[in-house]
Every structure is written in C-alpha cells, then in structure tokens.
Amino acid sequence: MSKRTAPKPQADIGIKPRQPCPCGSGKRYKACHGAAGGAANVIVTRPFEGLAAECELVALREFVPSATAKLPLRDGGEVTLATVLPMAAAALRRNDDKAFIGLQVQTHSGDISRDLARAVDWVRSAELGETLSVVGPETAEVGAVPPRLQDLLDPVAPLDVELHKDFSWWLPEDVEPTGEVALSLERANAAIMPTERLTAEGVESAYWVDAGEKAHLRWVRPEPEEQLLAALARLSARGELALGEDSRYAGSFRAHGLLVPVWDLDREKHAREWDEPAAELGRRLAEALGSLDTEPLNAAERRARDGLRGRQITIR
C-alpha cells in the first residue's frame, strides 16, 4: 500500500490572540490552537465526551483486540472504525474501496478525538491502497481549529460493534497477505485474547476477556468517578459487589476520563454464563447510584470506598 504526504498548512483564520479559542478549551487562542503546534498542545483527558458511543470507544481503544464498527457519520459517509489496522496505521483505504480508521495507534497530539477526525477526513479522499501511518502535528492546519469526532458523528447514535476472532478482515476476501502485512497479521493474530461482549439487557460496554490464567469482566462506566466509586463502595459494604461465588472485584482503571471496574471470573465458565449475573449487578449498581442523593455513605461504606481507591490505576 502506498503512503500519501500530509496536506500543507493553511493560513491563519484571523482569530485574535486574546480571544477564547473556538475549540472550547477555555484557553485563550494564543495559548491553545493559535500556539505553535496548535491542537497538538491541548491535552484532552476525556476525548469522547458527549458521544453516546463514548464507553464503547474507550473499550475499543484500550482492550478489545479485534473489532470493527461503522461510524455513524452525520453526512452518512462510509467509514469503518477498527480497533487496530495493519502496522497500527491511522487510516487506510483498501483496494476494494473500503475506508478504515484505527483506534489503537500512536498519537502525537493531546486530543485523540481530533486525531480520529483528521484520519476520517484523510481516508475519505484517499486513493485505493493508500495508508496513513500516523496522525501528528504535521497534519494540523496552522491557525485553524480542526474538527473533532464529535463534529462528524451523530452524537446520540450507538456503535454497532462486531467482534472478530482474528484479523482476516484486514484484507479483502480474495487477497492473500504478503510481506510486512503478512507478518503483521501473523503477529496480531497470535496476540489476540479471546473476548466477548456481554449482551444482557441493561449491560453495555462490558466485555468478558480470557487473559490466560484467569478471565475478567471489564465494564466501562459513564458515571463521574466519585459517584460511581461511592455506589461501588455501597455494594461492597453490603457484600454485593461480586457477580456470584465464582467471581471477585479486582479493582478499576481510569481510561480517557472514565472508570473501568474489573472483576476476576471463573475461567471455566463460558462468557454467556456471565450475562445474567452482570445484569443483576447492573441493577444493584443502578439502585445504589440512585440512593446517593438521599442517603450519604455511612462509616462502613466510606471505609469501603477508601479500600476501592487503593485498587485504582490510571492508564490514560
């Protein structure tokens, strides 16, 4: 596949340096997109905020190995979001004219949402077989405020995620991989951990993952961290935080502004056997979240919250 050079910078768009930056960061234009490097200087800790698909985007970016989803573009264009592309490319247009952008990529800016939007813009005008290896500062327009994914997508549309057992979808059905692509495909397939998306009613962005020695449930939650942590602590104090006798709450990690609780599961059970336990836990969690407005945490629940905080890490 060939590679195309980034577009040349354009002229300044005329915003005064001391005016608020139109990107909404709250900074003055001269300290944000008007500075050298533009959008690359702006660190966005919750890049997918405002999208109904936020939790799914976090899951696909961080731990789902092989999956695709058609992007719900406002203008109805055909671009497929992928967890990872050959050689971790940012975007590619296959020889069969299908356009893809990758989530699990190297980034050189502080806003993944803008990087993805640039990849979408690039791939829609790319020629057959072209690949964009990385989105970086050189693809930004000097003085301009490039769009974010929120500007391109229907904000209330969910992602219809399709999980794959391997990465054979990288290539059209009648094409045999060769060279670097074949090597990348072999390595990617060897590294896949079996993953299933739980499908019970009320359970969204929750994935069963077979990590080898044990299985896990990783559940991306949309609630503010402190609110979610308080609800988890309420369940923990009641002994209701597990999904049953064959599970235990392991901790949580932060990713792109959201908290992802994790449970260790009995690896001998099939992923589908955890659908109903997860739904029951979801109902208990919803009840606990609803009770926080009228019932402050008691002493035991506050101690439980402190214990849960000790099992948190941040990966993004």
Rank of each mutant, 00 (worst) to 15 (best):
L229T: 05
E196I: 07
L235F: 12
E186S: 13
Y207M: 03
L241Q: 03
A190M: 09
E225W: 03
R254T: 15
L235G: 08
E240H: 06
Q227L: 15
A188V: 04
G251F: 06
M193W: 12
L185V: 06
E240N: 08
R218G: 10
G212T: 01
K214D: 13
T195A: 06
L241Y: 04
E225F: 08
G251E: 04
E186C: 08
A215T: 06
T199I: 14
E213G: 15
A250C: 09
A250Q: 05
L241R: 00
A190V: 08
H216E: 12
T199D: 14
V209R: 02
A231T: 07
E245P: 06
F253A: 10
A233H: 05
L185P: 01
A231S: 08
L217A: 06
A237Q: 07
F253S: 11
W208R: 00
E245F: 10
V209A: 03
A230F: 06
E201Y: 12
E201G: 13
Y207G: 11
W219T: 02
V220H: 03
G212Q: 05
L185M: 11
L198V: 07
A190K: 07
S205F: 09
H216K: 05
L185F: 08
S247D: 01
E240Q: 11
S247G: 02
Q227M: 14
R254V: 14
Y249S: 01
S252I: 05
R238W: 12
D246R: 05
A231F: 06
H216I: 01
L241I: 13
T199Q: 14
A231V: 01
G202K: 01
V209T: 07
R238S: 15
R197A: 15
G212C: 08
K214T: 13
R218M: 12
E201S: 15
D210S: 14
Y249M: 02
S252Y: 06
A231W: 00
K214W: 12
M193C: 14
R238G: 15
N189H: 05
S205P: 09
A242Y: 01
A188C: 06
M193F: 15
A237W: 04
A191D: 13
A230Y: 08
A211G: 15
R218P: 03
L232D: 07
G244E: 00
A242R: 00
G257N: 04
L229I: 07
A188Q: 01
A206N: 04
L217F: 07
E223W: 11
F253C: 09
E201F: 13
W219L: 03
R238Q: 15
R238K: 15
R197H: 14
A255W: 03
M193Y: 12
L243G: 05
S247Y: 00
E213V: 11
D246S: 13
R238D: 14
L198S: 06
L243K: 00
A206Q: 01
T195H: 00
R218L: 11
P222W: 10
P194Y: 09
L232F: 10
A237M: 07
